[in-house]
Design a protein around this nucleic acid. Sequence first.
DNA 1: CGAGCGGTTGAGTAGGATCAATTGTTGTGG
DNA 2: CCACAACAATTGATCCTACTCAACCGCTCG
Lengths: 250, 250
Amino acid sequence: MSVKPRPLAPQIACGDCQIRHRAVCARCDGDELRALEEIKYYRRFEAGQTLVWSGDRMDFVASVVNGIATLTQTMEDGRRQMVGLLLPSDFVGRPGRARAPYDVTATTDVMLCCFRREPFEAMIRETPHLAQRLLEMTLDELDAAREWMLLLGRKTAREKIASLLAILARRNATLQARAGSGGTITFDLPLTREAMSDYLGLTLETVSRQISALRRDGVIHLEGKRHITVPDMNRLLSEAGDDSDGGLVD
Amino acid sequence: MSVKPRPLAPQIACGDCQIRHRAVCARCDGDELRALEEIKYYRRFEAGQTLVWSGDRMDFVASVVNGIATLTQTMEDGRRQMVGLLLPSDFVGRPGRARAPYDVTATTDVMLCCFRREPFEAMIRETPHLAQRLLEMTLDELDAAREWMLLLGRKTAREKIASLLAILARRNATLQARAGSGGTITFDLPLTREAMSDYLGLTLETVSRQISALRRDGVIHLEGKRHITVPDMNRLLSEAGDDSDGGLVD
DNA sequence: CGAGCGGTTGAGTAGGATCAATTGTTGTGG
DNA sequence: CCACAACAATTGATCCTACTCAACCGCTCG
């Protein structure tokens, strides 16, 4: 249980940063960036590591630079629900709160750009660009959370799986900048079956069965356990129950 | 289907407003309040009315002054999930977005304090107090949404009901300023069984059965259909699975 | 080689959904 | 004043989806 010395990564100039235009700092001008450079430092985590435990003191907030992390809540008897999926440029922590309300776990290797909390809170108060961007990001997260609530409360297991795959596919599509809506899309699952079950409010057995079912029905193709091909995105979307089109299965 | 002329309510001075210190305007100083007075107007809605339809254009944002409203999402086949419960001082609408993503419905008579969207957005940019308060409120809503996700994804029907009752009881307790944690609490359900089922991701039959079960087991008492007494708040909390104490049922 | 881990599949079960009947309660019109 | 419709809610019977428990596969690592 001994903790390795925290891996501090070398400083990167904000100007060279991959997430410069999507993270909290997106709207900051030159002076503001320089102020941020003063209070930032990088930390690297390995896949599987817990970055923060629920209830822990957090004296930083951070942007995810690369990798994927999750927020999860756990009940006393061990039931777990993922409540956040953090991708590059997403924000971790809450200004004005010292204790973490959720476990934060790295599902892949993760690099964080951390800001010491106190000076960051001061900047929020003083530089409107930072506060405005954070507000915008928080509103987006709230919308995502509400979409997620519909999934958890009302969708069937099959629809849940299809929805998650659609989210991941769409994300990869924007990165690959292809596939208007109908084309073939390919990506790797960044989550284990267990993590997927925590996301979807299912058991891992049900996740596995439904993935198999979608494969049998030709909605997706699988190579190995993790590599997924979606031959027809519209088909996947209609399986997800989201429908832009009208569910024209037959 | 004819729409009554929208009920415009008489103007109230911000200084006399019940929600002055909890709404978006909570941190505003005198000048800022005066600017808000310029762009605000009141609207009243009757119980059951839909304030906004999903997809509609919204050219205002608003604070709930009194009454209770809900945000709901609906799938094509009619499955519905509530994704927000709006109480007095809560905020409706999103600066920077013209179209409503959810249906907003009054469950009781509701009064809104509306701000025309364009000037309000300008104020967000210029008066940091407004933006800061809105950020804070949005972060609180995000936390609430994540708590709700745990409920939807992992709790049993009985725990869901107990959780909802605990939330409503706690809210009334703060209003009545009593009942540290153990005392008797009494309140009226502001929701129909159907609205509760939309909140909890259940059917209304299951809601009814579980309320009956909690009554049989002495966790709550019922007078009529809507008036609820909680003799032991800790008992209710442990039924909800939230537990501050360890679930010491036997 | 065996242990550990991620994943798949099968058999049996249970919790909540579905379909249906019934009881108030309220409000409307004759 | 009562009959009737509309609506909220309760309760019962039955069904089915997803959970539970269990065995097993393939791969990696020590």
